[in-house]
Structures are given as C-alpha cells and as structure tokens.
C-alpha cells in the first residue's frame, strides 16, 4: 500500500494575514484563498466547483462559511463541505517561524 506523503509549502508570512483578513496565494498552479477568522487560519481552493467563481471574493458568515460571489454556493471553511452537489477543496494549515504553511 502506498500512502501519499504530506508536503508542507510556505503560503505567506503570518503577519500578512491579520484577523479578519483574507489573502490569495498560488501554490504551484493552484490558487488558494486564505482567511483569518478570529485568529484561526483557513485555506480553501479559490475555485468554486459550481462555475469556477473566486471564493476569495466571497461573503463570509458567522458560522465559518464562505459563499461564492457568483451564484451563492456556500462552503464550510473547515472541511469544504456544502449542501450543494459538490464540495470545495480545503487545506491543512500550520504556522511556524513566522510563516504559514499549507499541506498539499
């Protein structure tokens, strides 16, 4: 059995994402939207599985959801789950040495 190993890559400096902030980063060819909700960092692929809308421009809600700006599909930032027909891809995040890392 082969297990896919986790690769941690630098996303940005921690200080570049203050509470309430959001930031778009590119990991290889994939755009990832980062959000700092009350000190907790979330990372989600910046492409809505519906029509490809940019989630970085979405509307956040108090329950930790992001709503796509194009047609309103909502995703839970913790795991990408949705009540719509498809989920979004999320990434584990860690902070170390002043940097934020994403597991890809």
């Amino acid at each position: 059995m082969f297990l896919k190993s986790t690769r941690w890559v630098v996303a940005c400096r921690f200080e570049d994402l203050p509470p309430g902030g959001r930031k778009l980063v590119k990991i290889d060819t994939t755009e990832v939207a980062l959000f700092n909700l009350n000190g907790v960092i979330y990372a989600i692929k910046n492409r809505c599985p519906h029509r490809g809308g940019p989630l970085i421009r979405g509307v956040l809600d108090a329950a930790g959801g992001i709503k796509c700006p194009l047609h309103g599909w909502r995703f839970d930032l913790r795991d990408g789950s949705s009540q719509r027909p498809a989920c979004a891809t999320t990434y584990s995040v860690k902070a170390e040495g002043g940097f934020l890392y994403l597991a890809v």
């Binding site: 029509r51 490809g52 809308g53 940019p54 421009r57 700006p69 194009l70």
Partner: peptide, 11 residues
C-alpha cells in the same frame, strides 16, 4: 474574467 484583474475564462 469573473472580476477585474482576473484571468479570462470562456464562459
């Protein structure tokens, strides 16, 4: 694109 400054998409 979907917003100003974004890459073009066909739709």
């Amino acid at each position: 694109g979907d917003f100003p400054g974004m890459e073009s998409n066909l739709e």
